[in-house]
């Protein structure tokens, strides 16, 4: 991947309201050419609104947008030829075959029949869908639909790709394969703007990340630099029965140097700049009426950084992840 410092996407003071709701509140960021930029936040944070504005499906109330050097502030369609879009739902045509869907999407970008048919075959092969290419899209599994939707987004080989929650609602194996495809695309030089609420996904894929909460960007930084915040930090996660609620207050009161947050109803995570002594913590938790089933030392992750910066409990993000998985989306 070559990130040469040229700006592919530049956003300044971008704002959007829906009635009383401030969906995007004057955000600024830029994405460099060849970069895989993550836009991370919980549901309703303003990720999809931002991406919709950038791709021309929504109009901003205020702010400036430059994509590939083209000013799109007044004309949202001005840079559409430079971008590919993978929406959060697989929105191809159910009555067309996989091959015909790709070919049709290529035609929307002015590709000749020969060029788009060659490219469609190449992409079906690359995405492991060659055998399913002649079948109707409506009959595909969720994972296959997602892969074909990504293929449709890059049929015209765009230099900039917008991906909105590419792995939401699909099984683990398909999600892993899609992450590989995204990483490969970026290695091939495509600038990728990725929105996700999967923190591990962002950590694994992105070079830089912006955290967005309630329409505001609270931090933009390289993943490496964000992770530096966790250097020398020690994290232990306790699996408890009898309820995690209220445990953190008593731990924080008893152990002043330790930060604690509830990961779920049955787990709490503690962080400390010093090595964590398990025994006293276990006793404290069990004195509080809960029983410790397991204590596990963890490598500090981007999730911990996210929690620290945004103040949003990781449990909230996890619940959203589960909700998205149950509800599907692909």
């Amino acid at each position: 991947m070559s990130v040469d410092g040229k700006i592919a996407i530049k956003v300044g003071a971008l704002a959007k309201r829906f009635g009383d709701v401030e969906a995007v509140a004057g955000i600024d960021f830029d994405v460099r050419e060849g970069e895989l930029f993550g836009f991370l936040g919980p549901n309703g944070a303003g990720k999809s609104t931002t991406i919709n504005i950038l791709i021309g499906l929504a109009r901003p109330d205020a702010g400036t947008i430059r994509i590939g050097g083209i000013d799109c502030s007044a004309n949202p369609k001005a840079a559409q030829h430079l971008m590919g879009v993978v929406p959060d739902e697989s929105n191809l045509y159910p009555e067309l075959t996989g091959f015909d869907n790709l070919s049709f999407c290529g035609s929307l970008y002015g590709m000749t029949r020969r060029d788009r048919e060659i490219r469609a075959r190449e992409l079906l092969e690359r995405f492991g869908l060659a055998e399913a290419g002649g079948r109707k899209f409506g009959g595909y599994s969720k994972g296959m639909k997602r892969k074909l939707t990504i293929a449709a987004g890059i049929i015209h080989s765009p230099p900039i790709l917008f991906m909105d929650e590419p792995t939401t609602g699909i099984d683990v194996a398909s999600a892993r394969r899609i992450r590989q495809l995204v990483a490969d695309l970026n290695r091939g030089g495509t600038t990728i703007f990725l929105t996700t609420h999967y923190i591990e996904e962002a950590e694994r894929l992105c070079r830089r990340i912006a955290f967005i909460v309630k329409g505001r960007i609270v931090r933009t930084d390289a993943v490496q630099d964000l992770m530096r915040r966790t250097d020398g930090r020690h994290v232990v996660q306790f699996a408890v029965s009898g309820g995690a609620a209220g445990l953190c207050e008593s731990i924080a009161a008893e152990f002043p140097g330790i930060r604690c947050h509830a990961v779920s109803d049955t787990a709490v995570r503690v962080e400390s700049p010093e090595p964590v002594r398990i025994g006293p913590l276990v006793r404290s938790i069990e004195d509080g009426g809960a029983e410790v089933a397991e204590a596990r030392k963890l490598r500090p992750s981007l999730e911990d950084v996210f929690v620290e910066i945004t103040g949003i409990e990781a449990g909230v993000m996890k619940q959203e992840r589960e909700k998205a998985r149950m509800g599907g989306g692909a």
Partner: peptide, 10 residues
């Protein structure tokens, strides 16, 4: 939402 594909065409 397949109509969005058309709206995204340049």
């Amino acid at each position: 939402r397949s109509f969005e594909r058309l709206l995204l065409a340049p």
